[in-house]
Amino acid sequence: MKNNQFITLGIESSCDETSASIVAEGRNALSNIIASQIKVHQVFGGVVPEIASRHHLDNINTVIDSALKEADVTLNEVDLIGVTHGPGLVGALLIGLATAKAMAYARKKPLVGVHHIQGHISANYLEHKDLKPPFLALVVSGGHTNIVDVEGYNQYRILGRTRDDAAGEAFDKVARVLGLGYPGGPLIDEAAKKGNPHAVEFKRVYLEKDSLDFSFSGIKTGVLNYLNTQKLKGETISVEDTAASFQLAVMEVIVNKTIMAAVNLKKDKIVMAGGVAANSLLRGMLKEACDKKGIGLYHPSPILCTDNAAMIACAAYYKYQAGIVDDFYLDAYPNLAL
């Protein structure tokens, strides 16, 4: 406790960001330190698990020190330690977990393992102080594409998920073939602003009628085929037009399915989460669609859309409030279900 406020230390290391955060009363991020490895992995064109794990280990203790220092909180004042225990890269997850477990054990603090997606959704609680469940959540990131019915702080029901690539994964792959680099999300978003989104009509994949699931591997192949055909014809390719057309095809499906779910379940709030929630087109399209239906739209600021530990601390706080505590056998689950 500090100034009569409940203090949570959050730790996140599921992919390529090492992060630690101090959150007061579950909602107020006093610090949120993120050591990104984007530059490290850029040369490989994607996250290399072994290298990510090595960097997490190098960085984690100083990241925790900085989080405590910036929040002006001592380890003594920490009431709870929350840590991502899945899903993610197992070698990466275990750095945060081993660290959290050892610290919690040594200082006799309660320990709570947090599902990464629950963390992403919880980022909105940090941003929007009055937001409360129930609502519909759209989680889109490099590793996840989910439509989730959030019935309570700890009640989640996945309504739709990707059957192959995550949306962010498709962005990375298309960015690579367009020669835009890594990570693909922000680069395609940027290039698309200068392109014509109707230049190429890529197929929108809706799967079965009423399905809330996604499939993005087809559109990735569609882009590849288009580029090859153009090349064979000797036509010049507009990277901007291709990026814009690809992006619109992906986002249209995501927006339509999300709105369909919200309408069917009579949800008056949609909450965006995950790295792709920072995409400007997705935000704009969803806002327009929500306005038409009278649905409130919430999203975190860009920094809280990326992987960060404040969202993990927030989610841990609500689990702990509900009486959920883990023991020191807590393990890493690369395919943890929500």
């Binding site: 794990s53 984690i60 203790n61 275990l94 081993a98 660290t99 050892a102 054990y105 040594a106």
Partner: peptide, 13 residues
Amino acid sequence: RIGVSSARALAQA
């Protein structure tokens, strides 16, 4: 890594 990160965290705590 499990050993070293646990040792570092114990030492830190």
